[in-house]
Write a protein that binds this DNA or RNA. Structure first.
Length: 288
DNA sequence: AAGATTACCTGAAGGC
DNA sequence: TGCCTTCAGGTAATCT
């Protein structure tokens, strides 16, 4: 579901809301969601853990716990972390609070962390791609998910960006979205970044001209920062930890605008399949 | 060994 | 109404 701006928004919200709380229990109806150590062990071992702070690494949300332990959550495509109060009613989740995160979202809650103040952190995930890992700081940070991550899109300097991108021969869009090259850019922002830089998504990364690379770099920073300020993009059912929508959706430049006029030249936006995903671009402004 | 494809899952939406 | 196909914010595993 979320890309860098959405994950940053959720991590910041969680940091504000649950730092200092103790975790009193864990529930899941989908044990596979815990890839390390196991759902049962996590439930046993996390009891009493104090949440120190929450940060984002790539698209992973990291809870720093006491005793040098970390809890990692990757929401993948449709995962949402939320803070609220829910009750188990037979095997169905029932919201105790009114608001936008009730009903439909709740039937997809597959994991709950109970907190010492009566509130809960819930992981809802329609497609069940999300994953949780729990262990020592060393264990979690040495997982391939974290270890293989490239530099963060908001942190990376131009020289390193240039070096890493030019080392790949595949399409620039796939390269931008490859978390081992740069971390944090997903399908929505990759499309908007390339449209802004006037670069065709299928252009091989190593064939980019210096000025094209510079534009891509500049717009990566600009667009991601803007989206963070707007608390992300809500397409479909994305919501922040309070159930609110992200406002970047109103600012989308090409993503999901197939057939609509290009905001620069008026030509009809086209869509192609790339690596099993949709790439949206302007055939006039973005030539190979 | 990089690049391309498939797997993981459950819908929603549109065509017939 | 229902069946079939395509698409959905990500990335790891598996191929070639």
């Amino acid at each position: 579901m979320p890309e860098l701006p959405e994950v940053q928004t959720i991590a910041d919200d969680l940091n504000r809301k649950v730092s200092g709380r103790r975790i009193t229990g864990f529930w899941t109806d989908w044990p596979k969601v815990v890839k390390l150590p196991s759902a049962k062990k996590l439930a046993d071992e996390i009891k009493g853990a104090r949440i120190e702070r929450i940060e984002r690494i790539g698209k992973n949300i990291i809870f720093y716990l006491n005793k040098n332990r970390l809890l990692l959550v990757h929401q993948k495509m449709t995962g949402h972390l939320m803070v609220g109060k829910w009750a188990l009613k037979s095997d169905k989740m029932e919201s105790l609070l009114p608001g936008p995160q009730k009903e439909r979202v709740n039937q997809y809650i597959h994991a709950l962390f109970y907190l010492d103040d009566g509130w809960m952190i819930a992981l809802s995930d329609m497609r069940k791609f999300a994953r949780i890992a729990f262990g020592s700081k060393e264990e979690i940070l040495s997982l391939p998910d974290i270890k293989k991550l490239g530099p963060d899109a908001l942190e990376i300097a131009f020289t390193e960006f240039e070096e890493r991108i030019l080392a790949r021969r595949k399409a620039i869009k796939l390269t931008l979205m490859d978390p081992t090259v740069v971390a944090g850019i997903g399908n929505i922002y990759a499309d908007d970044i390339l449209w802004s830089a006037r670069v065709h998504p299928l252009k091989p990364a190593n064939e980019l001209r210096p000025e094209e690379l510079k534009e891509i770099f500049e717009y990566t920073k600009k667009i991601l920062k803007r989206a963070v300020k707007l608390r992300g993009t809500s397409v479909g059912d994305y919501r922040d930890a309070d159930g609110r929508e992200g406002r970047y959706a109103k600012h989308l430049l090409v993503y999901r605008r197939t057939g609509s006029p290009c905001k620069r030249c008026g030509a009809a936006i086209e869509r192609v399949r790339l690596g099993g995903r949709s790439a949206h671009f302007c055939p006039e402004c973005q030539k190979i």
